[in-house]
Design a protein around this nucleic acid. Structure first.
Lengths: 220, 220, 220, 220
DNA sequence: TATGAATGAGTGTTCATTCAT
DNA sequence: GATGAATGAACACTCATTCAT
């Protein structure tokens, strides 16, 4: 019903049709609930052909993850103009991120929900992509510190945690923006910039929030 | 192999054993990959008993979600001391949250990963818990504004977005803290407070970060 | 919901409650689809008690068949006044039969449908009852012949076949009468008497219908 | 153990093999007691293939009912030569009926016993076939009345009852003939013609048997 | 290049039946 | 006399995967 049943297509094209169908099916049904039958039918090919080209359900899912991860990181990379100030770069990256995830909800579902939920061959795959994005954000945070002429005496792990938090907030806001009618990618990005940047700015100014004295607390 | 095979237990006890086994199995294998056989064996009972007490896989999973959601919200509620300043309450809530999730990784996996990934009976269940937490955080943000003697002219949706971002960041950091050796619940909470509170503080002072003029940008 | 949950009843009473519940359940659900759980609940007792009194599902079903078969034959026997002319006796028997089956639809379903459909322990049980009724009808046919002062030169097997046909017609009409609104037991009996007796009468007069010459027919 | 395990048959052929096996198994074991495993093995295929071609046990059973019902009505239709006198047509129809049922005992068991015993998807299916046969017999009765130059003042419901009785008698005799060694289809048909036709003939002559006065009877 | 035909292994679920009290 | 707790064995159904063409 989606792919026109055209015969004798070159392999590369057929493969993309299959991946399209697979991403859609995995994104909507989930990895385990998606059946190879459904994917093959949606792709307009017979099941053995799917196996001929993509070997197994696991491999097919991995291929989906890789393709969607590449598409997402590429979108973010393409959205960022290098050489600008760090806050500007972060803003651009976030906008690109929210735009891409809202335009490719099935791909995002595959990356954010399905791949992480189904154990080890897949979690690692998406973790690599995530690490790349976290590294990029970490770089921006450090760049911002340099631009503010501060020697960042933030411990390395602290910066890593901040980057994690920022990326996690972005992931969460992506789902929120997609689910909340009337919230655009731009607005989601602005909200997150408000939340994050001002906080980071404060810390750059040497006024970090500090937890109360641990002595009076119950352990935890 | 885990629970000692004790016979003739009262129903309530057996039910908790089953839920324990189910949370562990669902958390580690995933909802669909977890088999009722495995759960029953881990609980030290036969499969029919699981069905007698919990009706179906779906009901069993729902019961897991409910129990773990209640435990998590209860832990957070118990960690927060009412009447204190908003920042202090948030700090306490975050600590309780990270402590609980790190101590119950399978329960957290059920709530954060499995329940959201597997469609409608379950997603709604965990969405209710999440909404409760988001509402709590929203309340704290507004309270903080009041405490700072500011009429919060933040638009309602903006506050909602901020709360979403904060909760999302917390969820993400929970996974990061659990996966990164040497990061304690306390440290994770401190990192997030730094990230969030300083940013919020800036905004309270009327200095929110603002996005650059849209006219010069490419669409998105 | 049916049987009042009274404790410590004498065994005979409890057993009848169980048989009531069983007949109803077997009659409505069918032998295999009826579950011992449902029967026990309908009887207002626990499952082990059913087993204590009636041993097994098979035995329980057999007990149902026997009780309902006895009730039906007894009803027919009680409806017939001995010593009267054969046609009158047949009329009375048919009326009693249709009356009883319409008043005990579950019992009739057990005998006519369920017992015959589920193989050998049971089919024999109901076959015995049926044989008894067929023998009674056979006797009436022969009596009718004697009353008409005819030495019945009908071969024995022919009479048996006629009796079978009559009983079969009655069974079929019982279902029809129960399913067709406005058809009373009396009307069903009258219809069958019309159908059967006039035919038998003709034969008594020596004018049986005879099949056409076999020579011109295809084999069969 | 029955069908030779021939591989790679065209779908239509395999389907018939499956239906053959299913009719046999359903006819002998009963609908519920028949297992899909047994049917598949008897058909010489694996269980998934049965599901691939026939969807479910319910659908498989329905397909059996339809096939056997069509075969039976077709056999009766083919046995009757139109245009002949009504008694002759009835005789031919009965012979065809008894011949077919004796040659296909499992199919007959499916139609007569199993389908009627197991609730609504199935009962309706066989009721349709039965209605067709009853209508055919009704037509013959009316035709016989016309041929006897009588305006049939038999009330409509009376004719319907007679047709029901005739068909019921036939169904019952089919079982009797199959179970009684030495009774041929021809003899069963002759017995039923004797039983039925002479009775009908009497009624055509205006001499129906009439029930005794109800005033002297006990109620019922 | 592409597929119709076919299956081994496993799933959730149910049921008649029994033990310990 | 009566029951709550428990299970072995089976069943309908599904799925990823492969062979023969």
């Amino acid at each position: 019903m989606d792919a026109v049943k055209t015969k004798r297509m070159p392999r590369a094209v057929r493969e993309q049709q299959m991946l399209d169908a697979a991403v859609r099916t995995f994104g909507q049904r989930g990895y385990m609930a998606a059946s190879m039958d459904e994917i093959a039918e949606l792709a307009g090919v017979s099941k053995p052909l799917v196996y001929l080209y993509l070997n197994s359900k696991e491999d097919l899912f991995t291929a989906c993850i890789r393709r969607e991860a590449a598409a997402l990181t590429e979108a973010v990379r393409a959205g960022v103009i290098p050489g600008r100030p760090a806050d500007r770069q972060l803003w651009e990256g976030l906008r690109a991120f929210f735009t891409h995830t809202s335009r490719h909800p099935d791909g995002w579902a595959v990356l954010h929900l399905q791949a992480r939920t189904h154990g080890e061959p897949f979690a690692a795959e998406v973790a690599a992509m995530r690490a790349e994005i976290v590294a990029f954000v970490t770089e921006l945070i450090l760049a911002a510190a340099r631009e503010a002429h501060r020697d960042p005496d933030l411990p390395e792990r602290e910066v890593a945690g901040l980057a994690e938090a920022l990326v996690g907030a972005a992931e969460s806001l992506a789902a929120w923006a997609n689910a909340t009618p009337g919230v655009t990618a731009r607005q989601a990005a602005a909200t997150l910039m408000n939340f994050a940047w001002a906080g980071l700015g404060n810390m750059m100014d040497g006024r970090p929030w500090s937890p109360p004295d641990a002595a009076h607390e119950v352990s935890g």
